[in-house]
Nucleic acid binder design. Structure first.
Lengths: 205, 205
DNA sequence: TCTCAATCGTTCTAAATTTCACGAATCATT
DNA sequence: AATGATTCGTGAAATTTAGAACGATTGAGA
């Protein structure tokens, strides 16, 4: 089986989200054209993405919503749940803990870490906040997959180093700065500033 | 002047952020190799991106930090400030209002809108929360450039429609769902779920 | 002054991605 | 049963993006 590129994976996750919405509305059949309208991607691209996995569509009919969703999910996730740990239980960290997209399973935040006495021991949306010193132990025990950086940017490098030491290989960095990590560690940066500015600069009116 | 692709723009914004960091450390010269180490991008790509604008580097020396930053900024932003309005002053909305990257100028949130009586009239990090009904008026008066959706996904389409009616042409959608808008309106989706899952699926161990 | 090493800018090549075009399959309709 | 319209799946072309190679320029040091 050939490797699926990251961009394709992102699109497939979008398809899955869209299919879940359709199922809620009891729409059990869907065509690539309809998915195209709902996602903003071209119908050909959608069919091609889907064909990476296996053909489940019927000409003239489209795809069976549930079957397509399962096919995509089985391939990407094998029905696993992704376990996150969060560093920094401030404003942004709390908002992430309460993000409604996680509620539907697939993603579970297993622990949050902070240095503030006032936050340690509390629960935010059901997730306990621990002192950062306990991170290595908890990360290992819970087999956490991804670590999220939501601390002030002055501490983000330090936290990243600590994450790597604790055995994490995947990091999402919400701080507006770059971090350096060993090559084996994957980082995804989510700098709101850059996102907003790039939208603005993209097509000045 | 040829059109600069969106991916390039995003990288250029990353260069600007990096250059600002260098200036803070009083490093007034920088090579593409150094920028490469700091950003994780290849040095050739960086030089190529920079050459889109105009040549400001000196062989054997590198770039003058301040000059390069100004060259990039002038092209992208013409030193303008981007004006945002925020819909939804809940957990995520508040976190966005407090995002530290905005503090350095360039981005300014001019108003927040919410339906909750308890929030209307309050100020969050200096930004006043207004009832949504006042959105059209305030958006027009402030010449807001970008609208941010940080409301529950059940209301995101409704809010998007309202934004378009109010004259916004650029939307960042933090809700975990797609929205449909006229072709002239640009949407950027920020679904944390998809971001985290795509990182997870990208290179399963 | 001359040589050398470092770094820029650019052209050319390769890879990846998107778009196009079209045959094959399926159901509706006559 | 035959025709037609719709939609899937896919091979090929076109476009975009990344990467490699290399000449050109600059300052350092002999």
């Amino acid at each position: 089986m050939k490797k699926i590129p990251r961009k394709t994976i992102t699109r497939v996750l979008l398809y899955i989200r869209t299919l879940e919405g359709l199922l809620k509305e009891k729409r059990y059949l869907v065509s690539s054209k309809q998915l195209s309208e709902m996602t903003g991607l071209s119908d050909v691209k959608i069919r091609k993405d889907i064909s990476n996995f296996k053909s489940v569509g019927k000409p003239r009919i489209g795809y069976r919503t549930l079957e397509l969703k399962k096919t995509l999910q089985d391939f990407l996730l094998q029905s696993n749940t992704v376990h996150l740990v969060l560093f920094g239980a401030g404003n942004l960290g709390s908002a992430i803990l309460k993000y409604p997209g996680f509620q539907q399973g697939k993603i579970r935040v297993v622990a949050a870490f902070d240095v503030s006495r006032g936050k340690i021991g509390r629960k935010i949306n059901g997730v306990r906040v621990y002192p950062v010193e306990r991170a290595p132990e908890i990360i290992k025990r819970s087999h956490a997959d991804i670590g999220i950086i939501a601390v002030p940017k002055e501490h983000s490098q330090e936290v990243a180093d600590y994450m790597v030491l604790s055995g994490l290989h995947r990091i999402v960095n919400f701080a507006p700065c770059s971090i350096s990590v060993p090559a084996k560690v994957q980082v995804r940066n989510m700098d709101f500033t850059i996102e907003f500015l790039s939208l603005f600069c993209d097509s000045p009116k």
